[in-house]
Nucleic acid binder design. Structure first.
Length: 419
DNA sequence: TCTGGGGTCCTAGGACCC
DNA sequence: TCTGGGGTCCTAGGACCC
């Protein structure tokens, strides 16, 4: 177990999107609001605490949320503001320590072991952060402090909303034992139920179970991790820069019969988004994975690994298309599907593969690109035009075939990791 | 009126190599 | 008659997180 004080912090903005809306529009303060969705459909992206009191949660359909809370106000998101304010909060955190690990738009771990000589003990640093975020940005933020990341994260969840919890070394067990197992990172609904079936509901219950037994119940890795966490034995360091291991895009479009022209149009759009992000960072990947979701939420994935990394939009589209049809299989021609996804993994730097692209054979199934140089040049020109004149200035598809965006691109960007 | 979009990690089986 | 064991890579599915 790590020595020293509770110098790992987890800072987590409360109901982030909803809080931003309430900050921007004072008329929304103190009221139950949902960002995204609507009383007749769509998905709620975030709910204010006033709405959560009615049971409204992110991920819920709009009509379900309206059922639970009839006076719920649906507001459209200001996605650009979320990015701007999230970045501003991260700057406040960076003012305390350079060791900041941003986990998402609204959440970060900090290691403040080297900052106490400047700012005082961890408790004081937490108070400083919360005060500055409130005063300078206007948002509530909860902070947890402990000796490990995992415990700091649990502490911030317990602190919500708008609170601070410091777990003092030596008091970890008494803090953890009464808490529900669902607070442990990695325990979702399935594991929680499996544990409940065995009478295990609290972290204290969990700590009583021998590691071997836990591994038999939940699998080696999860069982091992859980028993380590229940013993508060977590030594993961705060990591400042992390690159994504995969890049993907997906689109849910309600039910549609799988018709070749439409499937191709959607895939071209998804491949374009993925490959543009790859090229913008000089990256390419060897494994292409598609997911097809059928009516009833059953989904099937197919992947294919090529010898040389690819990033050309057309190559990606062609590989994805073949995979999608193999996933749909020989089912009837009018099979209805509800979602298509494309992802690229096994990423490598593009510079290293440029030569391979130039030499590529004309079969995209077997190699990098076809003909690589030409496709790379077309993509490069289109990237340049879009950088100068906007994303819609040019594309592979006529506008009529482009799928209507269920979600604005600004929202997609909020969830993107660094490639 | 069903269920968005971006990711990570783990498991298990099979192919292939030595 | 049949045969070992370890390592690596690929693929498909699933749980989970924000």
């Amino acid at each position: 177990m790590p020595d020293g004080g509770p110098t790992i912090l987890h800072a987590d903005l409360d109901a982030f999107y909803a809080s931003v809306e309430q900050l921007l529009d004072p008329a929304l303060r103190g009221r139950p609001i949902a960002v995204g969705g609507g009383p007749s459909g769509g998905v709620v992206l975030a709910a204010s605490y006033e709405a959560k009191a009615f049971g409204v949660q992110g991920g819920m359909t709009g009509w379900r949320a309206a059922q639970l809370c009839p006076e719920l106000l649906f507001v459209r998101g200001h996605f650009g503001e979320y990015q701007r304010l999230g970045d501003a909060v991260m700057e406040v955190l960076a003012g305390v320590t350079p060791l900041v690990e941003r986990v998402s738009i609204d959440e970060a771990f900090l290691d403040v072991a080297g900052s106490t000589h400047l700012f005082g003990p961890p408790e004081r640093i937490c108070v400083l952060i919360r005060g500055r975020v409130r005063a300078e940005i206007g948002l509530p933020i909860s902070v947890g402090a402990a000796r490990t990341k995992h415990l700091a994260k649990i502490a911030s969840q317990v602190a919500k909303p708008d609170g601070l919890v410091v777990v003092q070394p030596g008091h970890e067990r008494e803090f953890l034992d009464p808490l529900p197992v669902g607070l442990i990172w990695g325990v979702g609904p399935v594991h929680r139920q499996r544990l409940a079936d065995l009478g295990i509901r609290t972290i204290g219950d969990l700590a009583q179970i021998p590691s071997g037994a836990l591994e038999r119940i939940l699998g080696h890795a999860v069982g091992h991790k859980l028993s380590a966490m229940a013993r508060n034995d977590d030594v993961r360091p705060v990591v400042t820069a992390r690159r994504a291991g995969s890049v993907g895009a997906q689109s849910a479009f309600g039910r549609r019969p799988a018709v070749a022209a439409e499937v191709r149009a959607v895939l071209a759009h998804l491949a374009d988004r993925v490959s543009r992000r790859l090229r913008a960072k000089g990256r390419a990947g060897r494994t292409v994975t598609v997911r097809v979701r059928f009516v009833g939420m059953r989904s099937v994935t197919r992947s294919h690994t090529v010898a040389e990394p690819v990033s050309a939009t057309l190559t990606l589209t062609e590989i994805a298309e073949r995979l999608v049809w193999s996933a749909i299989g020989s089912a009837s021609a009018a099979t209805e599907i509800t979602l298509l996804a494309v992802a690229v993994s096994k990423l490598a730097d593009q510079r290293a593969v440029q030569l391979e692209l130039d030499l590529a054979t004309p079969d995209p199934w077997r190699a990098g690109s076809a003909p690589g140089a030409a496709r790379g040049a077309v993509d490069g020109s289109m990237d340049e035009i879009r950088d100068r004149f906007g994303a819609d200035a040019v594309g592979y598809l006529p506008a009529v075939l482009r799928p209507a965006a269920a979600v604005p691109d600004e929202f997609r960007e909020l969830a993107e990791h660094d490639v």
